[in-house]
Design a protein around this nucleic acid. Structure first.
Lengths: 136, 136
DNA sequence: GTTTATGCAAATTCTTTGCAATACT
DNA sequence: AGTATTGCAAAGAATTTGCATAAAC
């Protein structure tokens, strides 16, 4: 059983060609992807609408998580730390202004923040922008 | 001279009805706004396209800054700390999952992060999600 | 066989561009 | 008067929804 199948059966989702293709594409690309990225790559495999629905389903089941961005495009990633059972989004994202790729820096701990009173926080996201190791 | 006029003349931008209306709307709403938010409110004042162009201009001149979001919509804000001459985006944004509003927490300092080698950072953004004081 | 996922069509929303008309200084 | 801004029209992306077909269990 491949990695994609394991992920799907873990989450009790039906194993379909489209879903495997989406997971495989994320596994092959370590940076965050948009729906149009997937659509371009998988146009021979499945429909545009199917990709939207797969993304929705994967978000609900904790296979994908949203990645913050400043340019108004919604990005998604399948992080190392999210491939096993505990799903935690609390990590740092780095967007390279040269290659445009956003990657998850799982190894960097999220710093603690002192919030104003009466604010409760459920999710932390940090987005750094600059030049990545490859482009510098 | 009103607040909007001061901001525009500080940046050596022409003072027009549309631009004043956009600034006034940001001044009246302390949370981050999308272009559609502005479009809905200002449809009697100016055209949809004008709003896009004003946003672009204001971003370039440091009147507005982009606010990171996880739902694929581009948000903008006019922060307290950006109304004077030094424009700094390095602050924490908080999105309330109840009312959906994103606000700038200017008073909270951005924590320092130890990055991997060969990464250089130009911009820091932090997005917290949870429940704000008003909604809790 | 039953349930769930997919494909197709179509509608909606968001964003960008070109050019003529208008408003600002 | 001269220049920058705006409005309108139109095109191009991105996203959502409904329903019939097809695939998975």
């Amino acid at each position: 059983m491949g990695a994609a199948e394991s992920i799907l059966s873990d989450k009790k989702l039906r194993i379909t060609l489209s879903r495997k293709a989406v997971i495989d594409y994320f596994l092959a690309h370590k940076h965050a992807l948009t729906q149009p990225d997937l659509e371009k790559e998988l146009e021979s495999v499945c429909d545009r609408v199917t990709i939207y629905r797969i993304i929705d389903s994967f978000l609900q089941h904790g296979i994908l998580h949203k990645v913050p961005d400043l340019d108004g495009t919604q990005k998604f990633a399948l992080c190392d730390s999210c491939t096993d059972h505990h799903h935690h989004d609390e990590h740092v994202h780095f967007k390279c202004s040269v290659c445009g790729k956003t990657e998850c820096l799982d190894e960097i701990p999220m710093p603690s923040i002192a919030l104003p009173t009466n604010y409760s926080v459920a999710e932390w996201n940090m987005l750094l922008q600059g030049v990545c190791a490859e482009c510098s």
